[in-house]
Design a protein around this nucleic acid. Sequence first.
DNA 1: CGCAATCTTGTAATGAGATAACATCACCTA
DNA 2: TAGGTGATGTTATCTCATTACAAGATTGCG
Lengths: 136, 136
Amino acid sequence: MSAHSHTHSDLTKNQSLVMDALSSSEGPLSAYTILDQLRDNGMRAPLQVYRALDKLVEYGLVHRLESLNAFVACRHPNCDSNKTIIFMICEACDKVNEITDAALAKNINKIAASEKFALNKSTVELRGLCPACQTD
Amino acid sequence: MSAHSHTHSDLTKNQSLVMDALSSSEGPLSAYTILDQLRDNGMRAPLQVYRALDKLVEYGLVHRLESLNAFVACRHPNCDSNKTIIFMICEACDKVNEITDAALAKNINKIAASEKFALNKSTVELRGLCPACQTD
DNA sequence: CGCAATCTTGTAATGAGATAACATCACCTA
DNA sequence: TAGGTGATGTTATCTCATTACAAGATTGCG
């Protein structure tokens, strides 16, 4: 099943609220930031947000950034959550660029295979400065 | 300066305690687990552990695993903390294998360059099953 | 229909990870 | 010996995440 087979209409109310919050954000948001933004929409407890996030991540609509303890809406055109995704996180403006790279994915699979490691999930997060923030 | 230019004798008391705890552990430890293990040695507050960990990471003796919020002693023979390190984390036994791969490092640098991203630090963490745990 | 099974939701409380702020101590050096 | 620097100790607080339990909603089937 493709990750994006879930359309917006499939989502529950809370899932839609969280999805919208992430989609309209410039950068990653923490669960508690999302909660604060959605207080007026009936969100009251962290767990409501975390439950929605869990599902959205499962559907491949949202990614979790391990190094930030935060979440971003998937912006990759043909995102397949099974692929290795590379996140480039700007340490100045906090924006995140999300890309895939066939060579790198292949490389990671090769490394795992050579170590006889049964790969389940890859996390690749790069920290640095995005083009816009290097001009300072 | 090479990451491992800091020998054990350079370390302060707290740093040594934390280093020993990590070195003698089979897998990664959280800061609070380390704290609990060292209560009898005078460690009383999280900050004492975090301060030691900060220095040990800075010296390249310890790595932080972003996806686990935990820390491991560096076991790579000629570890240079500037290199891209690949962590393979077993989801069954929690042991961590730490390797470097020149091709992958090159690949990541190439990707960053092609996106005009000024790379500062790379996090590559693979989740799955180690060889020993696949026999189940 | 009516009831049970199951899934989603709401709420409160708590666990786990990390840091801020401030006081103190040890050591080096001019 | 006075003063600077870095390491320590302590308390409180902040952020991130989950457990436990109650209450609705929905589906399936007699």
